[in-house]
Amino acid sequence: MASQNKRIAKELAECTNSPPPGISISLPNDSDLHTWHVVLEGPENTVYAGGRFGLVVSLPTDYPFRAPTVTFATRIYHPNVTNDSLGNICLGPLKPENWKPSTRLAGVLEAVRALLIEPQPDDPLEARIADEYRADRKEFEKNARTYVQRYAKGPVKFDSAVSATAGGGAGSGDDKKGAGAATTGSGSGNNP
């Protein structure tokens, strides 16, 4: 157990000291190394640009021998992410048969980011969105942008919401206040 924590602590240190591009990490609960909150900036030149997406990473007790689970806490319109409040992701290296104990979380998070840059419609979780992505790219982009406007603006909210300090993280400081208000006011049209 101690050695596992050593590994997790090391990874956490690496990720906070030199975070992968567009990614910032925090612990919602300092005594629990097994749940990470991640804020992922929508990559430039993609439909997700300008959005900020919350990811929840939970490490199983026998990490790194079993794969962590990574889910989107922020709704996102994407062929490889379930279009619901669960936000499950289909990611190759996280499948049990592909997971290797030497795989690093930084690499996993980068893979998630790469998925935003280049969706994989051939291996979809949302077949309808994948079809749209292939057949009607304009419509897909419009929908994805609408989702960004509606859900991915303002302070990032994580489902579990263990502590208020979790959300905004290293991003921009002014987001920290009033964490509860913004994202839920979805359809009200006050967003730019």
């Binding site: 026998d62 021998f65 079993r66 290296p93 048969e97 290797k100 104990p101 030497s102 795989t103 690093r104």
Partner: peptide, 23 residues
Amino acid sequence: HYLSQKIRGEGEAARIQCPSEGC
């Protein structure tokens, strides 16, 4: 630990790979 996880946890035997990523 890795081997026992594969054998006991996943019932894998014939295709247990080196624990290194991508190997």
